[in-house]
């Protein structure tokens, strides 16, 4: 077996997994709190990527340092996307908080459709190339093309986000409020937690990480269009479910498992069936463990 090839696939899988994880976090947190499959979440990721592309394009003329441009674009994209996240929640989900779950899901599907077409109409349906802004690190010259500097940045950013998020949820006031709300919304409200604030905050965090994923992926893959959010969203959702939806470590684990499965599947078997591997794997896992890898089986209280 060719070890270099193996490592290349492994790192490719980890990179993919990182991006899935950044998106899946939003899915899983929103699900944990309001039990909604936020179908429009993938579009947030797309909007993040597009905004970054637009800012990069606009700043490209100024002749600033490429790394600085990338950072500015990233910050603006992530903030804007977080804004989109809360706005969507306010319009499409908040009025449906006590409605049947199916209604909220349809509303989310409608929102997804709306956002896709919004970007399509305001921008373009073509694939747009994302300029290379991150220079190759010098110390990677010896690595023989197994890993690129963008990949390193993606892996490091994801790791950082995970750590910060874990600390946030474990130790801060708002983190505790989030956990309480996801356990029992009514009870949380009774002990004085501002539910609306907590939910809005969840959307902010979720959209923030998703957009981060969007910014990173477009610098890695190099081109985007209005439709990327849909597939990525579905995959990330698969990852979240795989790990056990509602569980944050589950979402991360599920994402890496999914990323690696896809990477090795396409690398060793066939690239035609990339998506089939992901979905087959999901069906298989859920048949064995109906609540996902880390999900706990919930006994209905009778």
């Amino acid at each position: 077996m060719d070890l270099d090839y193996f490592f290349q696939l492994f790192l490719g899988g980890m990179t993919r997994g990182s991006i899935y994880a950044l998106i899946a976090l939003g899915y899983t947190m929103v699900y944990g709190i309001i039990k909604l499959i936020n179908f429009a979440h993938g579009e947030i990721y797309m909007i993040g990527a597009f905004t970054a592309l637009i800012i990069v394009g606009a700043l490209g003329m100024t002749g600033l340092n490429p790394v600085l441009i990338f950072l500015i674009a990233g910050v603006i994209a992530v903030l804007t996307s977080a804004g989109y996240g809360v706005t969507i929640e306010r319009i499409a989900y908040k009025p449906l908080r006590n409605a049947p779950r199916l209604s909220a899901l349809i509303s989310a599907i409608g929102m997804s459709l709306f956002l896709q077409n919004y970007v399509l109409l305001a921008q373009t349906s073509n694939f747009l190339p994302f300029p290379t802004l991150i220079p190759e690190f010098k110390f990677l010259a010896n690595a023989g093309g197994i890993i690129s500097s963008t990949q390193i940045i993606i892996l490091a950013t994801t790791a950082l986000v995970m750590v910060v998020l874990t600390l946030l949820i474990k130790f801060t006031r708002i983190g505790k409020a989030m956990r309480a709300t996801s356990q029992d919304r009514q009870m949380a409200q009774l002990v004085g937690i501002g539910i609306n604030k907590v939910i809005a905050f969840t959307f902010v965090i979720g959209s923030f990480t998703a957009a981060l994923g969007g910014v990173l992926i477009c610098s890695h893959i190099g081109q985007i269009n209005f439709y990327i959010g849909f597939i990525a969203g579905i995959k990330a959702f698969v990852a979240a479910v795989l790990g056990g939806i509602g569980s944050i470590p589950g979402a991360v684990l599920g994402s890496f498992v999914l990323g690696l499965t896809e990477s090795f599947g396409t690398g060793y078997i066939s690239s035609d069936y990339e998506d089939v591997f992901a979905f087959l794997f999901l069906v298989l896992i859920l048949t064995i463990r109906p609540s996902g890898i880390l999900g706990r089986e919930k006994k209905a209280k009778v």
């Binding site: 592309l53 637009i54 970007v119």
Partner: peptide, 8 residues
């Protein structure tokens, strides 16, 4: 960003 600026 999305409505006002259009980049190619």
């Amino acid at each position: 960003p999305i409505m006002v600026i259009k980049v190619n």
